[in-house]
């Protein structure tokens, strides 16, 4: 089976500083790929190049090929808005937009011009994000007044409203309590059956728990990538070993 996304020779610069060096990486369908590495390793830049969020940063420039269904996602001709609808994203900090829970969830479909079956989808995505039971009676409550963990699950649900093919998660649990974190991890295991997840995390334990394969970045380079077990038990590179055993990062 060929990979869903194949990243070839991806480099990126913030201003004059190169933050990604010639990354080669394949992402398989229906897997959870954990991306780990110390701060400043280029994990987030890598993630944001997949749905072209880097385009929004005027100082950021990328180079390389991201092959997907026979096209290059790094191509200028790509409709980035449509791309981001296929590749949903959740940020490190929860970003509920002002307005109700319902309004937050309805925004994605509204932007795409689809309004049909909204209520049903709201329930199913909230269930998928393990949030339904907590908010089912108060969908018209202001989203920013939810707790941090609930906000982040709302953001996950909001991304799922797009019915994405790929889910890009940028340290989604970095500010959350352990219970919220485990809820999100549970949700991801469920979601895996019909979509592909790229999970950037600075929590090595989370990567070992939640992902099928792990990619280790350091200093803007992809050091190694392999099955989670292999990376954690028998890493090929000493750098990887040092990182996961807590020697740095």
């Amino acid at each position: 089976m060929s990979a869903l996304i194949e990243v070839r020779g991806l480099s990126a610069w913030h201003g004059a500083r190169q933050v990604l060096h010639d990354v080669q990486l394949a992402i398989e369908e229906h897997e959870i790929l954990g991306v780990i590495g110390p701060a400043g390793a280029g994990k987030t830049t890598f993630l944001r190049s997949l749905n072209r969020m880097n385009d929004l940063d005027a100082g950021c420039r990328t180079q390389g090929v991201i092959a997907y269904q026979g096209i290059d996602l790094a191509d200028r001709a790509i409709d980035t808005a449509a791309l981001r609808r296929r590749f949903g994203m959740v940020f490190a900090v929860p970003v509920p937009l002002p307005g109700s829970i319902r309004q937050n969830l309805a925004l994605g479909p509204a932007l795409g011009g689809s309004k049909s079956g909204l209520e049903g989808r709201i329930e199913s995505t909230l269930r998928a994000a393990c949030l339904w039971d907590e908010v089912k009676d108060r969908l018209d409550m202001s989203a920013p007044s939810l707790s941090g963990g609930q906000q982040q699950r709302l953001c996950l649900a909001r991304a799922l409203m797009l019915e994405p093919e790929v889910l890009l998660l940028d340290e989604p649990c970095s500010g959350l309590d352990p219970i919220s974190t485990s809820r999100i991890e549970d949700a991801l295991q469920e979601l895996k059956s019909h979509l592909t997840v790229v999970l950037v995390t600075n929590n090595v334990m989370q990567a070992s728990r939640a992902s099928d394969r792990v990619a280790f970045f350091n200093g803007g380079r992809l050091v190694e990538c392999g099955a989670t077990k292999q990376i954690f038990i028998n890493p090929r590179e000493k750098e990887t070993h040092d990182y996961i055993s807590g020697r740095f990062g």
Partner: peptide, 16 residues
């Protein structure tokens, strides 16, 4: 700024 990013991530065009 993060509000704008959130909207872009939901597939909004600049105008949206």
């Amino acid at each position: 700024k993060i509000y704008r990013e959130a909207a872009y991530a939901l597939g909004a065009t600049r105008w949206q």
